[in-house]
């Protein structure tokens, strides 16, 4: 197989892989942040706690996208 074509294919696959890896965390962070906003709007006095928990949750969810980012470079 042509070496350049193989490299290009590998790069394209890596990009597609990262795109797929970003779907789940994207949806997850959207849901998470939306619910956090709802919670803060309902109980503004608990906003500090909700915000901290939200960031913690985002950190967990985002980890998957970050692993995808790393794998994109590893590929």
């Amino acid at each position: 197989m042509d070496q350049a074509a193989a490299e290009a294919l590998k790069g394209a696959l890596a990009v597609i892989g990262y795109g797929l890896a970003a779907i789940g965390p994207g949806l997850g962070i959207g849901v998470l942040a939306g619910n956090a906003v709802q919670a803060m709007a309902r109980q503004p006095e608990a906003a500090g706690m909700v915000r901290t928990t939200m960031f913690l949750g985002i950190a967990f969810t985002e980890a998957l996208a970050l692993i995808g980012f790393v794998l994109f470079f590893l590929a």
Partner: peptide, 17 residues
């Protein structure tokens, strides 16, 4: 695993990425 490995990893890679 999440506390010991994923936490520092995601912390570093998030900023970096």
């Amino acid at each position: 695993i999440s506390t010991i490995f994923v936490r520092p990893f995601s912390l570093a890679v998030r900023l970096f990425a």
